[in-house]
């Protein structure tokens, strides 16, 4: 009996190991930075080790992990951004995606589509500054050099481009209703 238990536990551990990469990337696609992705993905594994029975089958474990990741991501977005996640599938759909690689691919497609959506219709310079800084990961200095502007200008441009992508007006512009004034937060 003890051996059966041990064998199940070892098999489960192997499933977890194989899931590290797809699960991590799936989460990263929805938070956009390593530290948050690591914490959320680790939390999913903590929950799994606490909740899953050692004799659970591989398919069941994979499906469980993806569902747990989805709900951990939702909690994270609600707490941090007070908004739904970037990639939000209906629960039933995710429940059937047992292959983590497939879920990860799908998350990647959605995330890239979201980028296109955000950049669509922006003035060329706004688009450019966001691409350089966020997609290519250049520093302010490098971005300024590529665009032939001063660093201070690059920062202003970046700020405005983000506002534009978020469909917000610059602060100084008159805009009432909805927005808090930012104090006391």
């Amino acid at each position: 009996m003890e051996e059966a238990f041990q064998a199940d536990a070892a098999a489960l551990a192997d499933v977890y190991r194989r899931m590290i990469r797809p699960l991590y990337r799936y989460v990263y696609r929805q938070v956009g930075n390593r530290e948050d992705a690591e914490d959320i993905a680790a939390e999913v594994f903590v929950r799994a080790t606490r909740w899953l029975r050692p004799e659970a089958g591989e398919r069941q474990v994979r499906a469980w992990l993806m569902r747990a990741a989805k709900s951990a991501i939702r909690e994270f977005w609600r707490a941090t951004y007070r908004s739904p996640p970037l990639v939000d599938w209906d629960v039933e759909r995710v429940a059937y995606i047992e292959l983590a690689e497939e879920a990860e691919d799908e998350a990647g497609r959605r995330a890239r589509r979201e980028v296109e959506e955000l950049l669509r219709g922006l003035p060329e310079r706004y688009r450019r500054v966001l691409e350089l800084r966020f997609l290519e990961g250049l520093s302010v200095r490098e971005t300024a050099e590529r665009m032939g502007v001063s660093e201070a200008n690059a920062k202003v441009l970046q700020h405005r481009a983000l506002l534009s992508a978020a469909r917000l007006s610059p602060r100084g512009a008159p805009r009432r209703g909805g927005e808090g004034d930012g104090h006391g937060g």
Partner: peptide, 29 residues
């Protein structure tokens, strides 16, 4: 800290999440 900052952060996160290449999980992770 504010609704505006949340909206801006969401755009930044979305841009970073939608890069073509993602980093691999780190050895520490």
């Amino acid at each position: 800290r504010t609704a505006r900052e949340r909206a801006l952060l969401r755009v930044m996160a979305a841009l970073r999440a939608g890069r073509r290449e993602l980093p691999e999980p780190s050895p520490e992770f």
